[in-house]
Design a protein around this nucleic acid. Structure first.
Lengths: 184, 184
DNA sequence: GTCTATATAATGATAGAC
DNA sequence: GTCTATCATTATATAGAC
């Protein structure tokens, strides 16, 4: 049962959701089989190297998502910087379900995650940082100021997600998004 | 082999280190046996309910540590607030090994962590928040301002730990400690 | 491309000797 | 209080039919 025909992006989206909820080690093949509606053996047809490859493909999927949904809009010089910032923050707010769900970046940093996966995680963070630095400059900030604001943006997002989930209060994340909007 | 006679606090310290590195699901009993020098069966003498109980006791241990190492010093009215802040930030800097190691709070939020454990995690964050709010007031801040600063402090610590580890650059954490020092 | 069946190793956990 | 031995269960992974 489950989805009859599952496109690759749909499958990666399911894997992303599961990895975010349970982490790399916490997510088992049985759980994946259940979530995708496929048998365990079938999963190896799509990902011959197993869970490591799934995590790797998910992170590449996320990196591509960041590219198209964050970096392209954030660099669109045709739109005023303030509007671009609001748009990107709204996208992130949806991605994190208003602060209710963890970030993959955060879940893929445990000691048992394959180094290749951590490599993509690093690239994702670097890309996001570059994006916000670029946006800061479009706001008229100096290079140094833009770097600082970009760093505080990433820290604020990740940190508020942690505190929100630990306190079971998405208000923390919500407030942080507002604060970030006023950084620039 | 390993430590010949292991005190309870030493054992909890080892468990804390391992949980921080590998997370709840990622840390296996075999790994714990190796790290403590005890046989798997011996671990059940100390923690009859197994890994769940270990995680619970570790979090209680952390909560006690926060009480004695953070909250008592942060509320010591005999010492100027500025000195108290520096002292507490230095303690946290050591606890996080200058940003190189993850926070338990962060590692105990995955979907497969027992609710009882998450309950203590929540209490730890609440305690820390109260501590920094109290300190903010001693700095002369209003109640609202102290709440905001306390929240930014917790977010800044957790967020910078994530970004530091993802980028493999403890400089992010180091800078954040300085920024927090200037919040108050 | 998905399945059933299976192999092999590791998991958390217990019994009982010392 | 620690051990060896063992348990049932689950883990990742593969073989081969359809």
């Amino acid at each position: 049962m489950g989805a009859l025909i599952l496109g690759r992006n749909e499958m990666l989206a399911i894997l992303l959701k599961e990895f975010r909820a349970l982490g790399f080690q916490g997510l088992s093949l049985s759980r994946i089989a259940e979530a995708t509606g496929l048998g365990k053996a079938s999963l190896y047809h799509h990902f011959p190297k197993g869970k490591d490859e799934m995590a790797l493909q998910v992170m590449k999927f996320v990196k591509d998502w960041i590219q198209s949904e964050i970096l392209i809009p954030i660099n669109d010089k045709e739109i005023p910087p303030k509007k671009r910032l609001s748009h990107v923050l709204k996208t992130l707010d949806q991605f994190y379900e208003k602060g209710a769900t963890a970030c993959v970046i955060e879940m893929m940093l445990a000691g048992d995650v394959p180094p290749s996966v951590k490599g993509i995680v690093k690239e994702c963070v670097e890309d996001l940082r570059e994006g916000f630095i670029s946006l800061g400059k479009d706001f008229g900030l100096s290079n140094d100021e833009a770097k600082k604001i970009a760093e505080q943006t990433l820290i604020g997002i990740q940190g508020s997600l942690i505190i929100s989930r630990s306190l079971n209060d998405v208000g923390v994340f919500k407030r942080q998004i507002k604060i970030i909007e006023n950084y620039f």
